[in-house]
């Protein structure tokens, strides 16, 4: 394993931000290569932990000869945000994942994106570990942008329950995944739950999915149990359940649970008087993929997303 410096930025009063990548050189020059990017934001606890767990696995838990293709892991890009509880780039609050492919003569975050992208753009496969932008908890899943270059078939190899095949929005054109695809890599985002405490059930699932993928693409000689045969979800396959009232949100069910049409799945309580002001019921049979992550819910906020079945 080589620890390589991806970039370094000085600060007026803070210690320099030094971002490292962990490079595992493969034993087989014909094997494909993969790069994994962890936390780009300060609230990305699972992306950070899953990436660093992967470094540990490759370092300490697998024979070196079984690493066939080159693997580069960059667990964190944004230590500055992680260390002070900020979400985005602490000075100007810009989102690094909206700066790609980057620009070496531009603003600080454009330069960071450019240096990062330079280090990873030539890999065959790319994984960006992300969390949702909005206030929502979801089950771990693949987000694959409809860029015209995306590869659904290989995305199945992670074995997640769900691949969200997402319509391209204008702001997606500056994301890492999109630009990675444009440069010829097969790139995927793994959307991790945004909890601020590590849930090892989720982190295990995500780590296994990455290892399963690397096994199936013969980047590592390591065969895990099969995962799910992923369901590909488009916008139409998701039912959105909004809360017509604001207040304290008490969900009865969690992402990953199956629910039936008409089932009570949560309630909203008046924050000052404690009475139930709204009962949330499932409008269809399906599996909850996503749920509002804050106990204080806003009027018209999306309380649940349910992937329809039946």
């Amino acid at each position: 394993m080589q620890k390589i410096e991806i970039f370094r930025i000085d600060s007026l009063s803070r210690a320099p931000l030094v971002v490292h990548g962990y490079l595992f050189k493969g034993s087989n020059p014909k094997a494909p290569s993969i790069a994994v990017v962890g936390a780009m934001e300060g609230n990305s606890i699972l992306p950070l932990y899953c990436a660093s767990s992967l470094v540990d696995f490759l370092n300490n838990k697998i024979d070196k000869e079984r690493i066939e293709g080159d693997i580069l892991i960059i667990p964190s890009i944004n230590h500055y945000a992680l260390n002070i509880g900020e979400r985005y780039w602490p000075l100007d609050k810009t989102n690094l994942n909206m700066m790609f492919p980057g620009y070496g003569l531009g603003e600080t975050t454009q330069r960071i994106a450019q240096k990062l992208f330079d280090a990873i753009s030539h890999y065959n496969y790319g994984i960006s570990l992300e969390t949702r932008v909005d206030q929502a908890h979801c089950i771990p899943h693949i987000k694959l942008l409809k860029s015209g270059y995306e590869d659904i078939e290989s995305a199945q190899k992670f074995g997640f329950k769900i691949i969200h095949h997402k319509d391209l929005e204008s702001t997606d054109t500056v994301s890492l995944q999109y630009n990675w695809q444009l440069w010829g890599a097969k790139a995927y985002s793994i959307v991790c739950p945004s909890e601020q405490q590590v849930d090892t059930a989720f982190s295990n699932q995500i780590l296994q999915a990455m290892l399963r993928f690397m096994g199936k693409t013969e980047i590592i000689d390591y065969k895990l149990f099969h995962g799910y045969q992923s369901n590909i979800l488009q916008k139409e396959s998701i039912e959105i359940i909004k809360s017509p009232r604001s207040g304290i949100f008490i969900p009865y069910q969690k992402p990953g649970h199956y629910v039936s049409n008409g089932q009570a799945i949560g309630e909203v309580v008046n924050a000052l008087e404690g009475n139930v002001v709204h009962k949330v019921t499932a409008p269809c049979d399906g599996m909850i993929t996503c749920m509002f992550s804050n106990s204080l819910i806003l009027e018209n906020a999306v309380a649940f997303r349910i992937a329809k079945i039946g």
Binding site: S246, A271, L296, I297, L298, E299
Partner: peptide, 8 residues
């Protein structure tokens, strides 16, 4: 308009 969670 949107009701905020706590009395606003």
């Amino acid at each position: 308009t949107s009701e905020l969670p706590v009395g606003e």
